[in-house]
Amino acid sequence: MEAERKAAQLSGDTTALLPVLPFHEKITYRAGNKTICCLEGGRIGIQYETSFAGEPCDLYHCVLESKSFLEKMTVLEHTVPFFLLIREAENDFLSSNAMKFIDHMGDLLQAYVDRREQVRLIKELYGNQIGELYHSLPYHMVEFFLDDFDCKVTLSLKYAEDLRSVLPTGVSVLAWPMHAVTMNTKEETQPIPTRLSYAEDALRSMSLPEAYAEIVLNLPQVLKETYPQENFA
């Protein structure tokens, strides 16, 4: 069964994945990446399908329940990662607009998977150039540095606090030359970092793998122009 499920996921046949869930025989309709079902006892089941670069990724589900028409709906069970704050969304949306809650969670899940897969892809493609990489659980804060040059470059990305963005809203890219201009303090001598605005612009407007390729392609020339006294390869 698990082998069939993985094969169906790779082939993009999401209908073959539905029997994994308890409400697969009562599908009412599909809306975007969501399959919404009416279940027994006044419950509603939602299956969320996520993707990256056109390929299917993770499946998540959520079951909503209302014991009577006079009571608001609540989340009975779900497979949403805890750091996506489903209970906060339940309090904000579910009592007044169930569809808004359903759409909101779909946006959260897709954005989370997109950010996660962007990070996974740069590690897979450029792992030999990337030093230590840090990220928060929902991947809304990412930081790493490049160590394949004679200059340490740190990249820090912050995404919107609502966790629904796939492009960073806050970006900082700094180059730290190893032997370049320094400033003297009473305690020690420290290198002066330079802000790489072209790299920040790329990260704000492109996916992380695309922006990374653009940054690395132009980095040697930018470093030569910024620090003409240095010998950058």
Rank of each mutant, 00 (worst) to 15 (best):
P177R: 05
E88L: 10
M178D: 10
L39F: 02
Q129P: 02
E210I: 06
V166K: 04
R116Q: 12
F101G: 03
G106V: 09
I86T: 11
F232C: 01
A211Y: 04
G54F: 09
K34Y: 00
D148M: 09
V63G: 02
A199G: 11
E200D: 01
Y60F: 15
E225D: 15
L155T: 15
A160L: 07
M105A: 01
F52A: 03
Q190I: 15
E225H: 09
A175N: 06
R116D: 05
T154F: 13
A3H: 12
E143H: 08
T226D: 10
L125K: 15
I44Q: 00
E210C: 03
A16G: 11
D147R: 11
L64Q: 00
V80Q: 04
L64N: 01
T79C: 08
L17G: 01
G127M: 12
R164K: 13
V166G: 00
M141P: 00
A53Y: 04
L157R: 01
P191M: 07
M206S: 10
I44S: 02
G170H: 11
A175E: 11
F82R: 05
T35V: 13
Y139I: 07
P193C: 09
D201A: 13
T185Y: 15
R195D: 03
Y159K: 08
A175I: 11
A175H: 10
F101W: 08
G106T: 06
L84K: 00
F145L: 04
L137W: 10
Y48W: 06
V153S: 03
V181A: 14
P209M: 04
S95P: 05
G170Q: 12
A16D: 09
R204W: 01
E49F: 14
S95K: 10
C57W: 07
L108K: 11
T154M: 12
R164A: 11
Y227V: 10
N231S: 11
R5K: 14
S205W: 07
L133Y: 01
Y60E: 02
Y227L: 13
D150E: 15
K34Q: 13
E90C: 07
D58I: 02
H78L: 09
D13W: 06
T74R: 05
P220F: 03
K72A: 12
Y198N: 06
D150N: 11
S197Q: 14
N91P: 00
A8V: 00
E25A: 14
L39H: 01
Y126S: 05
I86G: 00
Q129G: 03
G170W: 04
P177T: 07
A53W: 03
N128P: 02
L217F: 04
I102P: 02
L203M: 12
R120P: 00
I86H: 04
S66V: 09
